[in-house]
Amino acid sequence: MHTTNAYMAMAIDEAVAEAVAAGRSPPTMRFWRWSPSAVSIGYFQGMEEEVNLQACLASGTDVVRRRTGGGAVFHDRDGEITYSVIAPEDMFPRGIRESYQMICGWAIEGLARMGIRAEFAPINDITVGGKKISGNAQTRRGGVLLQHGTILYKLDPQKMFSHLKISKEKISDKMIQSVHERVTKILDYNIVSMDEAYKSLLKGFVSGKAYDFGTLTTEEIARAHELAEKRYMSREWNFSR
């Protein structure tokens, strides 16, 4: 598991997807943490509508638009483990729901290794006892499927809400209480370190698969730097809607 800023995180996913599409890289899974903390928004969301940009600027939080749909997420550097699965589409069911279910199933198996009984909650979540522990987003392009998702390790609702565009009135004790009723995290069930949690998740993801540990190729890293600079750091991309 490595750490990366938001722009490189998104750029690496895209660079690896391009290399997989061109047959130059194998199907790839990666795990990372966002550093600094970041807010990512879905492709179809408006940055100014969703993100408290002043708060992000003040706390040094990155803001980035994803190339996947879905909602705005606050990615706490110390609060979550993020994964990406990047592989040819034909390795997955054709149906989008079914492919979400398959990949989320690997995360569910990883959580089970920590004694956490999670289940797939269509259309793109994983829940424990009805509370969300993981959100996922998928896209398909050039014959390659990319799914990235976050698994909550710990949660600070006050910090989360202050970076998203929710009125101050709404960031009340009642609302924070409501988050605890709707959202859960690994530490609610098992006091493990983040590294131990990652290792359990990794086992769930690779179970039953032939795999090697590797690093990004020189080509992927160079392309990711280019994409980060030209797209993911640009105002044109991030504020395009």
């Binding site: 879905g42 408006g46 996947t68 749909g69 705005a72 998928q138 398909r140």
Partner: peptide, 9 residues
């Protein structure tokens, strides 16, 4: 705008 999915985006 919204938090839905649509391919290609």
């Amino acid at each position: 705008t919204g938090d839905f999915f649509l391919h290609p985006e």
